[in-house]
Design a protein around this nucleic acid. Structure first.
Length: 653
RNA sequence: GGGCUCAUAGUUCAGUUUGGAUAGAAUGGCUGCCUGCGGAGCAGUUGGUCGUGGGUUCAAAUCCCUCUGAGCCCA
C-alpha cells in the first residue's frame, strides 16, 4: 500500500486501457510531476503513443482517460488507491492518490521497527572490498571516502538480507611499506619511544614523508629498498618478521580509525601471503592454459610474460627476472575472490570489533598446523560462490581494473556481471586547508591541491573527527546543561562521526570533493545533524505523549483515524515516507548509497515542516493519536535509514 | 599522442541512466517567527542565457557531434 503499489496499479490501469483501445504495448514512465498542482503521479504514455501513431498527445490523453481509465476507476470503486485521473492539455495524464485508502499503510508500519525486513528477495552472497590502505600511514580524509562508501554498501546489503563479506586488503609487500622499513632499519629512524601524543600510524606517516626526502640525497637507500622488498617477498627472515610486526601495529591503528566511524570488516587479506601461497602459480597456469598471457621473445618486453590490453598493447605480468608485477598480484587476488581456484588459506582470528563481530585474517595452511581453536572452520569464506564482488577504489585505478576484468572475462564469460569495480573520484584539499596544515604551496593559483602521503599533504581522519567532536561537545553542553559529561561526550562523538559519514556520502561518486575544513565543521543545513535533530524532535513528542502510547497505537485501535491526516503538509510527509522501499531498492540496484542521504534529508525536511505548522500534542484527542502515529512511523523510517548510513540516533541531542 | 571523468545560482551541490509541464536544495545576502511539541529549526525574499557552438525532436540541463576549461590514467 506504499507508493510502489499505487504506481503498479496505475500501470495495470494503463495497460488495460491500451488493450481496450487496441493499442500495442509499450514502455512508459509513471513518476511524480514537478508541481503538486498536477496531482500525485503522472505518465508520459500519451507522448509516446502520439509519436508512434502521429496523433496529438492531448487527444490521446483524453481518449485514454475518458474511454477507459475513468470507467476502470469507477469499477474498482472507493477502495481504489487512485482517486481520479485527468488528461492535462499538455498531454500528460495525471493521477491523484486516494489518501483515505492510501494512509492505512501507516497502521502497518507503526509497530514495524525493522522495515527493511519488508524488502525480501535479495538473498545473494556479496563480497565488498574497501579501505585497502597501504599499511605505512594513518587514514586520511581521502581514505575515509572509500571506507564510508564501502561500509554504507555493506550496511545496505546486509540489512536487505544479503549474505555479505567485507574484505580489507593489506599490501604489506609493496614499495610504500618497504620505504618505512628502510627508514627504520637503515636510515636511523626509531619505531620505539615515539612520544605519547602521537599515534603510531601517524608517526609512521611522518617518517614516510621524511624518508622520501632522504632518498633524494642518499641513493644507497634506494638499493636498500630493493633488498627489503626481496626479503619480504621471500619471507622467513629477520626483515620479513620485523615488517610483519610493524605492519600489524599500523593495521591495528588504522582499524581503530575505521571502527571509530562505525565501519567494520570480516577479513584482512594479507598480500605477502598471496605471494607465498602459490595462489599466483595456480592463476598463472590458468592464464597460460587459456592463452591469455604469452611469453615475449622479442622487443622491449623480451623474456617477460605479457598480456594484451584493450589497445592491443603489451602489459608485463612477469618480469624477465621472474618477479610478478602488481597486475599479477591483483589478478590472483581477483581469481581467489571469484572462487576460481582452490582456497590456499586458512583463517585466524585477528580481533573482535566494536560491533562484537570477529575480524579474521588469512593464514597459510602450512603456518597453521596446530590444533588452535581459531582454525578455519569458523569462517567459511569459500563455501559458496559469490554473486557479486564489489571493489571500492578511486578512479585512478580504473584502467587497471578494466584490464583485470577483461582478463577475468576471458577466463569465464559472465564474470563482468559479477566482478564490479566501483570507482569514485578522489578527495582533494582547498588551498586554505593546505595552508592550515602548514604546507607551503608552490602554485598560489591552484583551486585544488591533491593529497599526497609522500609529500605530507594530507589531513588525518582523526584530526577532522577530533575537531568536529570538540565543536559538538561545546554545542551540546550549551543546549543541555543538565547532561553529565560522559553522555555529552558520547553524543558529541555520534554527531562528529555521523557528520563526516554524511558529508562524504552525499556527493556524487564521480565528482571530486574539495575538502575544506571550515565547511566540514559546519553543522547547519544539509548535514547529518539536521536529520538527528529531526529525529530528536520526533522522539520528544513521543516521550511527552505519555507511557500508554505503546498500546494506544495499534492497528485495531478505533481511535486512530489515518484518514484524518488530510492536511497538505501531512499528505506530503506521508507520501514521502511511503517511498521508503522504492528508494532502498533503487539504492541496492544502482550501488548508490547517496540516494539514501537525499531521501533522509527530504523526509526530515517534510517532518520539520509538519512539526512547525501542525500541533500534535495540542490537537484534539483523535487527531492527536493519529498524528502521533505519523510521528512514530517517521521515527521508524528514519531509524532504518540511519542504520544504513551509519548515523547515530539520540532522543536528546 | 591515446583513453576516462567533470562543468547547473556569489559558493557547495541535486536533477542527466529512462528527453516532458515555470530548472530544485543547502549556504551566503535581505525579512519575518520562540509565554507554544526543542530556533542546530520554520516561513518568505534575492540570485541561473544549465561552459561554447551546432544537430536530432512536437519537446533538450538531459541524447549525438564540435570546441573550451578543470582533473585523472596510460605512453
Amino acid at each position: 500500500m506504499t507508493l510502489k503499489e499505487v504506481i503498479n496499479q496505475i500501470r495495470q490501469i494503463i495497460d488495460k486501457a491500451l488493450f481496450d483501445l487496441e493499442y500495442d504495448k509499450l514502455e512508459y514512465d509513471v513518476s511524480e510531476p514537478p508541481k503538486t498542482e498536477f496531482g500525485d503521479l503522472t505518465t508520459n504514455i500519451a507522448f509516446l503513443l502520439g509519436k508512434r501513431i502521429h496523433k496529438k498527445p492531448n487527444e490521446i490523453a483524453k481518449e485514454l482517460v475518458y474511454n477507459s481509465i475513468n470507467l476502470q476507476l469507477k469499477n474498482i470503486g472507493k477502495d481504489s488507491l487512485i482517486l481520479n485521473a485527468n488528461a492535462h492539455v499538455s498531454g500528460h495524464i495525471n493521477f491523484n492518490i486516494n489518501y483515505v485508502t492510501f494512509n492505512t499503510f501507516l497502521l502497518k508500519w507503526v509497530n514495524q521497527n525493522d522495515l527493511l525486513k519488508l524488502t525480501p528477495g535479495f538473498d545473494k552472497k556479496i563480497i565488498i572490498e574497501h579501505t585497502s590502505v597501504n599499511p605505512n600511514k594513518a587514514l586520511h580524509i581521502g581514505h575515509l571516502r572509500n571506507v564510508i562508501i564501502g561500509d554504507s554498501l555493506y550496511r545496505l546489503f546486509k540489512l536487505t538480507n544479503h549474505t555479505t563479506i567485507v574484505l580489507n586488503y593489506i599490501d604489506d609487500s609493496g614499495v610504500q611499506v618497504a620505504d618505512l622499513i628502510v627508514a627504520f632499519k637503515f636510515a636511523g629512524f626509531s619505531p620505539e619511544n615515539i612520544g605519547k601524543n602521537i599515534k603510531f600510524d601517524q608517526y609512521c606517516g611522518d617518517v614516510y614523508v621524511r624518508m622520501n626526502e632522504l632518498y633524494k640525497t642518499n641513493l644507497e637507500l634506494i638499493e636498500k629498498r630493493k633488498l627489503v622488498i626481496r626479503e619480504i617477498e621471500q619471507g622467513n627472515n629477520e626483515i620479513a618478521q620485523f615488517t610483519h610486526s610493524i605492519v600489524e601495529k599500523i593495521v591495528k591503528q588504522q582499524l581503530e580509525s575505521s571502527w571509530r566511524i562505525k565501519s567494520r570488516y570480516d577479513l584482512l587479506v594479507i598480500e605477502s601471503q598471496i605471494l607465498l601461497s602459490k595462489l599466483w602459480e595456480k592463476t598463472f597456469n590458468l592464464l597460460k592454459a587459456k592463452n591469455i598471457i604469452y611469453y615475449s621473445t622479442q622487443g622491449k618486453n623480451i623474456n617477460c610474460w605479457v598480456l594484451r590490453d584493450e589497445h592491443n598493447e603489451e602489459k608485463v605480468i612477469i618480469r624477465s627476472d621472474g618477479t610478478a608485477t602488481y597486475i599479477a598480484k591483483d589478478i590472483s587476488f581477483a581469481v581467489w575472490k571469484l572462487n576460481l581456484v582452490n582456497d590456499p588459506f586458512t583463517y585466524n582470528k585477528f580481533s573482535v570489533q566494536w560491533d562484537k563481530s570477529i575480524l579474521w585474517k588469512t593464514m597459510l595452511k602450512s603456518q597453521n598446523t596446530d590444533d588452535s581453536p581459531l582454525r578455519q572452520s569458523d569462517f567459511l569464506f569459500m563455501e559458496n560462490r559469490p554473486d557479486k564482488i564489489i571493489t571500492v577504489i578511486d578512479s585512478r585505478q580504473e584502467r587497471l581494473q578494466k584490464i583485470i576484468s577483461d582478463v577475468l572475462s576471458d577466463i569465464e564469460t559472465d564474470i563482468n556481471n559479477r566482478y564490479i569495480y566501483l570507482g569514485y573520484e578522489t578527495v582533494a584539499l582547498s588551498p586554505k586547508s593546505v595552508q592550515d596544515i602548514g604546507v607551503e604551496l608552490n602554485d598560489i593559483n591552484k583551486k585544488i591541491i591533491h593529497m599526497s602521503g609522500r609529500k605530507g599533504i594530507f589531513i588525518n581522519a582523526d584530526t577532522i573527527l577530533n575537531k568536529l567532536h570538540k565543536k559538538a561537545c561545546y554545542e551540546v553542553k550549551k543546549r543541555n546543561p543538565s547532561l553529565d559529561d560522559t553522555t555529552i561526550y558520547e553524543i558529541a562523538e555520534g554527531i562528529a562521526v555521523s557528520a563526516i559519514r554524511y558529508n562524504l556520502l552525499r556527493q556524487d561518486m564521480d565528482k571530486m570533493i574539495t575538502f575544506d575544513m571550515e565547511e566540514a565543521l559546519n553543522l547547519e543545513g544539509d548535514t547529518s545533524l539536521y536529520l538527528q535533530y529531526s529525529f530528536a524532535r520526533a522522539m520528544r513528542i513521543l516521550e511527552k505523549s505519555n507511557d500508554s502510547l505503546g498500546e494506544f497505537i495499534n492497528e485495531k485501535n478505533a481511535n486512530i483515524r489515518s484518514d484524518l491526516l488530510n492536511h497538505t503538509i501531512e499528505r506530503d510527509l506521508i507520501k514521502e515516507i511511503s517511498k521508503f522501499n522504492i528508494i532502498i531498492e533503487e539504492s541496492v540496484n544502482t550501488l548508490n548509497p547517496k540516494i539514501i542521504t537525499k531521501y533522509a534529508n527530504r523526509i526530515s525536511t517534510k517532518f520539520n515542516s509538519f512539526y512547525e505548522n501542525l500541533p500534535v500534542l495540542g490537537a484534539e484527542e483523535i487527531l492527536k493519536v493519529s498524528r502521533l502515529m505519523l510521528v512514530k512511523v517517521f521515527v521508524n523510517v528514519l531509524a532504518n535509514l540511519f542504520k544504513i548510513l551509519g548515523i547515530e540516533s539520540f532522543s536528546r541531542i
